[in-house]
Simulated scan of single mutants.
Amino acid sequence: MSRSPAVYLLASAKRGTLYTGVTSDLIQRVWQHREHLAQGFTERYGFDRLVWYEQHETMENAIQREKKIKKWNREWKIRLIEENNPEWRDLWQDIAGTS
């Protein structure tokens, strides 16, 4: 996976607390979350499960999408996740190429 702007959702557990973020390097950013290097809200809730992401052509588009998703209610976010990841599988292995 090459570096490209992405919007992502992390979860503390299946149907747990959700975090919406945006980044220019999804692998690096999710790794930071998994290693608990991201301080604040994500560190406090132990987000380490990537449950959804969407890549974009430009950072501007990714930021706009992130802002929209952040305004959504929780059920809409859960529906977004479960459309493509009904088991809430950690997608880290998919993006990092690890087993």
Rank of each mutant, 00 (worst) to 15 (best):
residue 38 A to E: 10
residue 40 G to Y: 09
residue 89 R to H: 07
residue 56 H to V: 01
residue 82 E to V: 03
residue 11 A to W: 05
residue 39 Q to G: 10
residue 65 R to A: 12
residue 69 I to W: 14
residue 91 L to P: 01
residue 42 T to Y: 03
residue 7 V to D: 00
residue 35 E to V: 12
residue 24 S to R: 14
residue 15 R to F: 10
residue 71 K to M: 14
residue 69 I to D: 08
residue 53 Y to D: 00
residue 13 A to K: 14
residue 73 N to L: 08
residue 23 T to G: 02
residue 21 G to W: 08
residue 30 V to I: 15
residue 81 I to P: 02
residue 18 L to I: 11
residue 30 V to D: 05
residue 48 D to C: 12
residue 23 T to Q: 03
residue 65 R to N: 05
residue 75 E to S: 14
residue 34 R to C: 01
residue 66 E to M: 06
residue 61 N to C: 09
residue 34 R to M: 02
residue 34 R to S: 01
residue 79 R to N: 02
residue 96 A to W: 14
residue 94 D to N: 12
residue 3 R to Q: 13
residue 54 E to W: 07
residue 12 S to Y: 02
residue 38 A to I: 11
residue 90 D to F: 08
residue 70 K to D: 00
residue 44 R to S: 06
residue 39 Q to P: 02
residue 3 R to E: 11
residue 75 E to M: 14
residue 37 L to H: 15
residue 68 K to C: 04
residue 36 H to N: 14
residue 31 W to N: 11
residue 1 M to C: 03
residue 39 Q to C: 09
residue 45 Y to V: 02
residue 31 W to M: 11
residue 99 S to W: 10
residue 98 T to I: 14
residue 45 Y to W: 15
residue 88 W to G: 03
residue 10 L to D: 03
residue 44 R to T: 02
residue 41 F to Q: 05
residue 68 K to G: 01
residue 28 Q to C: 04
residue 77 K to V: 04
residue 78 I to D: 04
residue 8 Y to I: 07
residue 95 I to R: 06
residue 31 W to H: 13
residue 96 A to C: 13
residue 63 I to S: 07
residue 3 R to L: 13
residue 79 R to D: 00
residue 61 N to W: 06
residue 30 V to W: 09
residue 24 S to F: 04
residue 55 Q to C: 11
residue 1 M to Q: 05
residue 32 Q to V: 00
residue 68 K to Q: 12
residue 5 P to T: 03
residue 30 V to M: 12
residue 9 L to N: 02
residue 12 S to L: 14
residue 53 Y to W: 08
residue 50 L to W: 06
residue 95 I to S: 01
residue 7 V to P: 00
residue 3 R to I: 07
residue 64 Q to W: 10
residue 91 L to S: 02
residue 4 S to R: 15
residue 41 F to R: 12
residue 22 V to Q: 08
residue 48 D to L: 04
residue 38 A to T: 11
residue 16 G to R: 10
residue 6 A to C: 04
residue 57 E to S: 13
residue 40 G to A: 11
residue 61 N to V: 01
residue 89 R to M: 05
residue 96 A to P: 06
residue 5 P to R: 06
residue 47 F to G: 09
residue 60 E to D: 09
residue 67 K to N: 06
residue 28 Q to G: 02
residue 96 A to D: 07
residue 38 A to G: 07
residue 87 E to D: 12
residue 38 A to Y: 05
residue 51 V to R: 10
residue 30 V to C: 10
residue 21 G to H: 09
residue 64 Q to C: 10
residue 57 E to Q: 14
residue 12 S to H: 07
residue 41 F to H: 09
residue 45 Y to D: 06
residue 38 A to H: 10
residue 1 M to S: 09
residue 13 A to P: 00
residue 58 T to F: 02
residue 52 W to R: 13
residue 54 E to D: 10
residue 85 N to M: 10
residue 51 V to P: 05
residue 70 K to F: 08
residue 13 A to H: 06
residue 43 E to R: 15
residue 82 E to I: 05
residue 21 G to K: 04
residue 46 G to K: 07
residue 23 T to H: 06
residue 86 P to A: 08
residue 34 R to F: 03
residue 99 S to L: 09
residue 5 P to H: 09
residue 18 L to A: 08
residue 8 Y to F: 13
residue 13 A to N: 11
residue 76 W to R: 15
residue 34 R to G: 01
residue 5 P to M: 07
